[in-house]
């Protein structure tokens, strides 16, 4: 058995699988099959199932992504304060460890399910499916999924969400979109958070962040927002309501099964 991973490749037979070895050659019964499927088709299949599930229950699902510490949970707390009288909101929290964020959301009187991923750097559609078993979808209009704080991996995994919101806090560099194009390109709305700190930070220019996003052919809204001072919250909440209205208007045609 291989010492590295426990496989059955040994020093004795390794030469067989390396170039020029018996198993490296193709035989006469060799057949080539064209596939052309997404490499994450298993995840995509589950994501489509999740999306159907949301739509059957008339729930709009929004995936929040950002680096750690850019204020996703704080933004959710403030959003819940403003909207909970009008909409029924639920949250799925993704973190490597702890129930802390789910508890913060529950303290606002809103149901929250915590997914702890252990060492996994992102949420995937199967984890969301598991969490949905504990989520009262029948009672919800809006479900936020707070992804693991990470600007790389979450971008590759469809969870079944309808919309992506990516946060960029002013304590990060304004060139983040140029450094992490995949996650910022995927956004339906970019929020530049912690804007109350802007007067203290002379090295973050929101215009630079905007230009950096424009270079990614980003055409969706960019909002400067502070969950502390409430700057920009109206714009963010108006956008959310517009999405909710649009979703409920199209519900009868999109809801399937």
């Amino acid at each position: 058995m291989c010492d590295t991973c426990g496989c059955n490749v040994t020093h004795g037979n390794r030469h067989l699988i390396e170039e020029g070895g018996k198993h490296a050659h193709t035989s006469d019964d060799h057949v080539a099959i064209e596939v052309l499927e997404n490499l994450l088709s298993e995840n995509d299949h589950q994501a489509a199932h999740n999306r159907e599930h949301f739509e059957r229950h008339g729930v709009l699902a929004i995936n929040l992504m950002s680096s750690p510490g850019s204020g996703k949970t704080r933004l959710l707390e403030r959003t819940i304060d403003h909207l909970k009288e009008r909409y029924k909101i639920g949250v799925i929290e993704g973190d490597l460890e702890t129930e802390n964020d789910a508890q913060r959301i529950r303290d606002k009187g809103v149901p929250a399910v915590q997914i702890t991923t252990g060492t996994a750097c992102h949420l995937d559609a199967h984890m969301i499916h598991q969490a949905l078993h504990q989520t009262p979808l029948d009672e919800l209009d809006l479900l936020f999924i707070e992804n693991v704080g990470n600007l790389v991996c979450p971008a590759s995994f469809d969870l079944g969400q309808h919309l992506n919101v990516t946060l960029l806090s002013v304590t990060e560099g304004d060139d983040k979109p140029a450094k992490y194009p995949v996650i910022f390109r995927a956004a339906d709305h970019v929020l530049i958070t912690k804007s109350d700190l802007l007067p203290l930070l002379d090295d973050f220019d929101p215009d630079n962040a905007g230009q950096s996003l424009q270079q990614l052919a980003y055409k969706n809204p960019i909002t400067l927002v502070s969950a502390k001072s409430d700057q920009g919250m109206d714009e963010w909440l108006d956008w959310l309501e517009a999405q909710l209205n649009q979703a409920s208007a199209t519900e009868p045609t999109t809801a399937s099964v």
């Binding site: 035989s27 057949v31 080539a32 596939v35 499927e37 997404n38 490499l39 088709s41 052919a217």
Partner: peptide, 21 residues
């Protein structure tokens, strides 16, 4: 900047070559 990506975000299993005995 108003462009649409036509190539570059692929993540595809294109083909496999198999041996049958």
């Amino acid at each position: 900047y108003r462009t649409r990506l036509i190539s570059g975000d692929e993540l595809l299993l294109a083909s496999v070559e198999l041996t049958r005995n």
